[in-house]
């Protein structure tokens, strides 16, 4: 069964940049898919469209049979967790409160405006922190944590929500290799154990090959590769990462090759 169906979406930003040019894809429920491609290929835009943080200029996105639009947006977001490159935690709030913001979609507005939560929500949040292994930091301010720890809080926030889909927009790009590896392992485990569909955009081809069930390569707003990690040969990578007219791309390409 397809969890996500993307049908010929185009995206042009107000500044004239054409980020996506007719992208169509289907993502199976419970799969682990990695999006790769050079900077500016449209990976982030595509991911952010799947929970309505960006709206397509044309084409449709449907999640579990529901076409994404303003009316169903909050309902779809309630079932979609998101992990960001810069964590996007509220730094002044405690780790626990940040994780609890993942529960807000299940709460009425009256109690939570006063920062009141059910005991059950706290249990869920605590369990999520346990799974990412930072229960001891629960009552510390989120901005006191290291990058790797903050990203784990991000994962816990997504988990606490009880999502059916997790989108991760370059979750390891601002982390050191060890912390990055840990986050990828966590995401893979969540996908395997909970049957949550995971969609990750990455810059590291090596990580993509190691963790993904399926890899989608984007270049200049188009899908240029779609297949199993094994099929990602050197010349295919060449195709994904070259072809770009940007200056200085040669070095970028070499760096990507080095990762692979």
């Amino acid at each position: 069964m397809s969890h996500i169906i993307v049908n010929r979406i185009e995206k042009q930003f107000p500044n004239g940049v054409q980020a996506l040019r007719g992208v169509s894809m289907e993502i199976a429920a419970g799969s682990f898919t990695v999006l790769i491609g050079p900077s500016g290929a449209g990976k982030s835009t595509l991911l952010r469209m799947l929970n309505g943080l960006e709206l397509p200029s044309s084409g449709t996105v449907s999640i579990e049979g529901q076409t994404l639009g303003p009316r169903v947006m909050q309902r779809i977001r309630a079932k979609t967790g998101m992990i960001f490159q810069h964590f996007n935690l509220v730094g002044r709030l405690s780790v626990m409160t940040n994780v609890l913001t993942g529960r807000l979609s299940h709460r009425s507005w009256i109690g939570s405006v006063l920062y009141l939560f059910h005991e059950r929500d706290l249990k869920i949040a605590h369990h999520a922190l346990e799974r990412v292994g930072i229960t001891e930091k629960a009552w510390e301010r989120a901005d006191r944590l290291s990058g790797g720890q903050q990203q784990r809080v991000g994962v816990a926030r997504a988990l606490a929500q009880g999502p059916r889909l997790i989108l991760a927009d370059e979750p390891v790009a601002s982390l050191d290799p060890v912390a990055g590896e840990e986050i990828m392992r966590l995401l893979r485990k969540i996908c395997d154990q909970d049957g949550i569909t995971v969609l990750v955009s990455l810059h590291q081809v090596a990580l993509a090959k190691r963790y993904a069930d399926r890899i989608i390569g984007l270049n200049a707003g188009k899908i240029v590769f779609d297949g199993a990690p094994k099929a990602l040969e050197h010349d295919v990578l060449n195709h994904i990462y070259r072809n770009q007219k940007a200056i200085g791309n040669e070095e970028h390409f070499e760096a990507q090759m080095a990762y692979a």
Binding site: R77, V90, G154
Partner: peptide, 15 residues
């Protein structure tokens, strides 16, 4: 950025 982080998880307008 944190605003987006909270909004992405289905929080309501007032949340």
């Amino acid at each position: 950025k944190p605003v987006e982080g909270v909004a992405a998880h289905g929080a309501g307008w007032l949340h």
